[in-house]
């Protein structure tokens, strides 16, 4: 049961971040002079999966403040994007404007993921509230 929840959360993060990245990439492709090839699409998916995996794993660390958590999440994104995407897959070049653009895209994807997760939590909270009122009626 717990694994199902984890997989569902993991999958939601990948899908949301990949969608946001693809839309931003499509919008900025001409300006960045980087055509959206099949290899690049799979590479971007790999980066999104790596970000999701790192965030998922570092989530188990009991951080004391939200600021520390955000800082570690930012580090997760940087490692996946520039380490995995730049050094290993070679689809993120290390030029200054590109690095800034990629960081901007990553932040947008992060905000998108947080928003979707919040909507999911709202749905779960509504479900809990419904069950609470049912329990009180008994």
């Amino acid at each position: 049961m717990q694994w199902k929840k984890w997989f569902s959360q993991f999958f939601t993060i990948i899908c949301t971040s990949f969608t946001v990245i693809m839309l931003l990439y499509a919008g900025l492709a001409e300006w960045m002079d980087a055509a959206l090839t099949v290899t690049r699409v799979f590479g971007l998916f790999g980066i999104c999966a790596m970000v999701a995996l790192l965030i998922f794993l570092t989530d188990f660390i009991p951080f004391k403040t939200r600021q520390t958590r955000l800082a570690v999440n930012f580090l997760d994104v940087c490692i996946a994007v520039f380490g995995f995407g730049g050094d290993i897959l070679k689809i993120v070049p290390f030029s200054r404007p590109i690095v800034l653009t990629v960081l901007g895209m990553s932040c947008a994807a992060y905000v998108g993921v947080i928003a979707i997760m919040f909507v999911n939590e709202q749905i779960a909270a509504n479900d809990i509230n419904r069950k609470l009122s049912e329990m009180k009626k008994r």
Binding site: R69, M117, F118, E121, A125, I128, L132, M135
Partner: peptide, 16 residues
Amino acid sequence: NILKLDSVRPLPGSRY
């Protein structure tokens, strides 16, 4: 005690 809860609402950062 969950029977003493009135309601829950989500907060940013996966907390309720």
